[in-house]
Design a protein around this nucleic acid. Structure first.
Lengths: 331, 331
DNA sequence: CTGTTAGCGCGTTCAT
DNA sequence: ATGAACGCGCTAACAG
C-alpha cells in the first residue's frame, strides 16, 4: 500500500504538499496539484484513515449496539436509518449485537470505546425501559426504541399511545361500534400504552368500554391471536372490529375469523400494529396496520449524536416518533 | 482520556512497562504489574486501538458490504453469522449497505479499504451471480450468498439443487405421487437449480415428469402463489403435493387450497423453501420448508477470511452449504 | 525484569 | 506556494 511519502517522491514534492492536495488545501499551484494527483493515481494511493484519525483525533466512527439482532426483521430498518444518517455525514457505523448477554454488551461498549467511536447508539428490538449498559456514558449516546428509566440518556421511541388511539379511531371513523382489543402479553412495555390509546379513543368518541372485549395474549403470537379472536366471536353481540396489538396476533385472528366463514372487512374490520411487512402485506386481505418508525428512530438517533458532536454536548431529549397508519384492505 | 504515558507516571514506571502489562507480557514482576493495574483502574485507562493498530498494522477489522439490507429478513442472519465468527477471534465488523447502488458500493469498498479493514465479505440478499464491485480485490474477500461468474473470488452459496432434490424427495417419502412445483420467477438464480433438484428427485424415484405440474411465478409473491395453485387444483387429477420454491408462494398456495375446502396436509402436502420464519412458523398448519443457511454462510465467509489472514493468502474456494429440512406440519 | 529509541502515516505549526 | 520538524498513542527492537 502506497503511503503519502511515496506519492511525494513520485511527484517530486514534499509529502506535506501531497497532504494539502488530499485535503483540498487551496495553497497548491495547479501544476503541482496535477502532478500529485497523477502520482496518486498511478500508485493507487489511498489515504490511511487510521493514521489521519489518530492525528485529528476524530474517528468518524459511530458505535451501534443492538441488544439482539435475530428474531424480528425490525433490526434491519433501525440499522438502515442509522446508516443513512451516518453515511450522509461521512460517518461509518460499527455494529455489534450482544444477544441479550450483559457481559457481551459491556464488552461491546468497551471495544467500541477503545476503537474511539465518537458516539454510541444503543438499540433494542422491542420497545423497552432499560438500565444503561456500563460505560456507555463515556461517549455521547442515544437509546433507540428504548429509554432509561431515569431519562438520563437521550432516547427515541415510538408513540405507542397515540398509535393505539389512531388505530382505534380509524376503526371508529369506519363506522365500527363494538371494537375489541387483543393486546400484547401484559409484560410488554408497549402493551399499556396501546391499551391506553384504545381506551382514550373510545372515550373521546363516546363509545362504551366493554371489558369483555379486551383480551391479553400470553406471548403475542398467532396461536394466541387465534384463540382470543375465537373467544371474542362467541360474544353476543360479537365485535364488528378488532384492534390486534401486533400483526402476528392479527394473523391468528384472520384464521379464526375465516374459520367461522366471516369476511374481512365486510363482517369485521381488523387493524394490526407493527407493520411487519411479510405478514401485513401478504395476508389476504392485506392488513391495515400502524407502522413502527424503526427507520426514523435509527435516523434520528444518529442525527442527534451528530448534532451533539457539533455542539460539544448532548442533550438528553426523550423523543417520541409517530406510528403512521398504513392503509391496506382489512378495515 | 488517559494515555499509556499517564498511567506510567502514576505507576512510576516507564510507559513500555505499561504496554507490557496490557499485552500480557510475562516479563513483568508481580508487584510492578499490580501497581500498573492499579493505576489503570484509578485512571480509567483504556488502550487506544487506533494507535495500536497503526503500529501493528493490523486493524482487526473486517468489512461487510451488503447489496441491500431492507427487503428481506435474511440480512440479519448473514450478519449474525459473520459477527459471531468475527467476535470469537477479536475482530469487529464494519457493515455497509449500498442499496443496490453501484456508486455507493464502490464508495463503501474504498472507505473500508481506507479504514484498513483486513478483509471484506460482500453479501447479497438473494442468491446471485455478480460482477465484483471495483477495488474489492485490494483486500482478501469472500462473497456470501453470491459468486463471481468466473469463480475468481472465494464464495459461499446455498446448495439449491440439493435443496430442491430433498424437498421433493421428502414429499415422495411421504407417499406423494403427483408432485407439483411452483417455481420462482424465471430470472432468479435459484430457480433453475431448485427445478433441477425437483426433476432429479422425480427421476431418481421413477416418477413421471408432467409439464403441466410445473409452473413459474412472475415475482415469487403470495398473490402469484395463489393463482398458480388455483390453476394446479384445476388439473385432473389434481396434485397431491406441491413444492413451492419459496415460503411466500406457499403462503398464497395455502389460501388457494383452503379456499377450495381442501386440508393441509391430509388432502395435499405443501413444502416451501427459505424458512422465512415469520411466515413458515406462523402459517396454519406450520409450513415444512428448506432453510437457507444464511447464518452459516456469514460464519463461513468470515472464517475463511480469517484463515486467509493466518495463511497469508486466500484460496478462491467455491463452497456450497446445504439447505436443511425444517419439519413442521404441512406435509 | 525494565527502560530507551525509533517510527507507524498522517496533520499541525511554523518557517521559508 | 512549499517544506521541516514535531507529535498523536502505541509497539518493536534493542539495550541494560
Amino acid at each position: 500500500m502506497a503511503t503519502i511519502k511515496q506519492v511525494a517522491d513520485a511527484a517530486h514534492v514534499s509529502f506535506k504538499t501531497v497532504s494539502r492536495v488530499i485535503n483540498d488545501d487551496p495553497n497548491v499551484s495547479a501544476t503541482t496539484r496535477a502532478r500529485v494527483i497523477d502520482a496518486i493515481n498511478t500508485l493507487g494511493y489511498r489515504p490511511n484513515l487510521i493514521a489521519r484519525n489518530m492525528r485529528t483525533r476524530r474517528s468518524h466512527l459511530l458505535g451501534f449496539v443492538a441488544d439482539e439482532i435475530a428474531t424480528t426483521p425490525f433490526a434491519v430498518n433501525l440499522i438502515k436509518g442509522a446508516q443513512d444518517a451516518a453515511w450522509k455525514r461521512g460517518f461509518m457505523l460499527m455494529i455489534v449485537s450482544c444477544d441479550n448477554d450483559a457481559a457481551r454488551a459491556e464488552g461491546a461498549v468497551e471495544t467500541l470505546l477503545e476503537r474511539k467511536v465518537e458516539g454510541v447508539v444503543y438499540a433494542t428490538m422491542r420497545h423497552e425501559v432499560i438500565v444503561p449498559p456500563p460505560h456507555i456514558d463515556e461517549a455521547p449516546s442515544v437509546f433507540a426504541n428504548c429509554r432509561a428509566e431515569d431519562g438520563s440518556v437521550a432516547s427515541v421511541t415510538p408513540n405507542e399511545e397515540r398509535g393505539g388511539f389512531e388505530a382505534t379511531e380509524t376503526l371508529i371513523h369506519r363506522g365500527r361500534q363494538r371494537i375489541a382489543l387483543i393486546n400484547l402479553e401484559p409484560g410488554a412495555t408497549a402493551a399499556q400504552a396501546r391499551l391506553a390509546g384504545y381506551l382514550r379513543a373510545l372515550t373521546t368518541h363516546g363509545l362504551p368500554i366493554d371489558e369483555r372485549r379486551i383480551r391479553n395474549t400470553d406471548d403475542g403470537q398467532p396461536d394466541d391471536g387465534f384463540r382470543r379472536m375465537d373467544e371474542l366471536l362467541d360474544l353476543t353481540p360479537p365485535p364488528d372490529a378488532v384492534f390486534c396489538a401486533n400483526d402476528r396476533i392479527a394473523m391468528g385472528a384472520y384464521d379464526a375469523i375465516k374459520a367461522r366463514g366471516l369476511r374481512i372487512p365486510q363482517d369485521i374490520s381488523v387493524i394490526g400494529f407493527d407493520n411487519q411487512e411479510v405478514i401485513a402485506a401478504y395476508l389476504r386481505p392485506a392488513l391495515t396496520t400502524m407502522a413502527l418508525p424503526h427507520y426514523e428512530m435509527g435516523y434520528w438517533a444518529v442525527e442527534h449524536l451528530l448534532r451533539a458532536l457539533d455542539n460539544g454536548a448532548i442533550s438528553p431529549e426523550q423523543v417520541m416518533l409517530p406510528c403512521p397508519l398504513v392503509r391496506r384492505a382489512s378495515i
